[in-house]
């Protein structure tokens, strides 16, 4: 009986880490050496979608510390200024958590529109920080394409995350 309870607890603990693990795994596509440079420049920011989704539907399972650490890791591996991605993901996490009531239990197009706004703000923030750190105006036309790709990919990835949510976390 005690062993069974322990197994149950382990099982639940493992399920609770799923949001963090998905966010962590979703930084990988942006790092893959895909040959064609245009492909990696415009690779959607999947981790942003995952942070948005989990903060909206399971904020209890995505602690801010996890968001921060995953962001830091992606910065280090991608060669961004250390902290840029961490700050962006953390800001998205905080904003979504404060605006949960506006989105949760709403129809999908509204959620999608909300995501588009927040993603645009996140990219604008990243661009401003990049300019500030370089102390000059940086042209980043690929960022607009990446933002577009991220917003367009939202329904597909959100559908996948809904599957994960229902099948694994329950």
């Amino acid at each position: 009986m005690r062993l069974f309870l322990l197994a149950l607890q382990l099982d639940q603990a493992a399920r609770a880490t799923v949001p963090t693990v998905t966010v962590g795994l979703l930084i990988l596509p942006g790092l893959l050496p895909l040959g064609a440079p245009w492909l990696s420049e415009t690779m959607p920011h999947f981790a942003l979608i995952a942070v948005f989704y989990w903060t909206l539907y399971r904020p209890d399972l995505l602690p801010p510390a996890a968001v921060f650490l995953v962001g830091l890791l992606s910065d280090i591996l991608a060669g961004h200024p250390t902290g840029l991605g961490a700050l962006t993901l953390l800001a998205v996490h905080v904003v979504v958590q404060n605006q949960r009531q506006a989105f949760v239990l709403r129809s999908f197009p509204i959620v999608w529109g909300g995501f588009a706004l927040i993603a645009a703000a996140a990219f604008l923030g990243m661009w401003l920080m990049t300019c500030l750190l370089a102390l000059r105006l940086v042209m980043a036309p690929a960022a607009i394409l990446q933002l577009g790709a991220t917003v367009l990919c939202f329904p597909v990835l959100a559908w996948g995350l809904v599957r994960v949510h229902r099948q694994i976390i329950r």
Binding site: L31, P33, S40, E41, M43, A78, A140, A143, L145, Q146
Partner: peptide, 8 residues
């Protein structure tokens, strides 16, 4: 890794 995103 890839040759960077839009900012790097």
């Amino acid at each position: 890794t890839a040759t960077g995103g839009p900012f790097v």
